[in-house]
Computed example of a mutant assay.
Amino acid sequence: MTSEKARSGVSQLRRGVLEFCVLALLRDGEKYGFELVRDLGTAQAMVTSEGTIYPLLSRLRRDELVSSSWRDSTAGPPRRYYTLTPAGLLALKEFTAEWTPFRDAVDRLLTSEENTA
């Protein structure tokens, strides 16, 4: 069974990378909030809720990493669509450049620990 400390660490890590996962989902085109929740849910470790994603999207808008516009919907009320801005794309590229070596280093350390245990 996973300890509370391990769960807490993974939860903090997930919160730290969630905004960059959202930016990555917007790289290929605009999406509305619930679409992002659904797409994140397909990556099992990134399951999130609307209560988490909408405040994050508001912060990304305020930081000018995404822009948004309202559109009518054929299936209900209007939807706010989010688009990656040039600043958001740059932030995503910078994070990706840092993430890959970080992830690889962590993987090496974790794998090394498993082999010595």
Rank of each mutant, 00 (worst) to 15 (best):
A105I: 00
G88N: 01
K5F: 02
A91D: 01
S69K: 15
L36G: 03
R27K: 15
S67Q: 10
F34N: 14
T116Y: 09
L26M: 10
P55C: 05
L60M: 13
A105V: 04
D39G: 04
N115E: 14
L92D: 03
S49Q: 11
M46D: 09
K31D: 03
R7W: 00
R14K: 15
D39W: 10
G29A: 05
L90E: 13
Q12H: 07
E94C: 09
K31A: 14
G16D: 05
L57Y: 02
R59T: 10
R27Q: 15
G41M: 06
E64Q: 11
D28I: 06
T83E: 14
D72H: 08
R59I: 04
T85R: 04
A45H: 12
L26K: 07
Q44W: 13
G29H: 05
L60R: 03
L25P: 03
E4Q: 11
L109A: 12
R14T: 02
T85V: 05
R108F: 14
L13G: 04
S49L: 09
L57M: 12
R38L: 07
P77M: 06
V106T: 05
M46S: 13
A43W: 15
E30F: 11
L26E: 02
T85C: 04
G16I: 02
R27E: 15
A97Y: 00
V47I: 11
Y82L: 14
Y32S: 11
G9I: 02
L36C: 08
I53G: 00
G33H: 10
E50A: 14
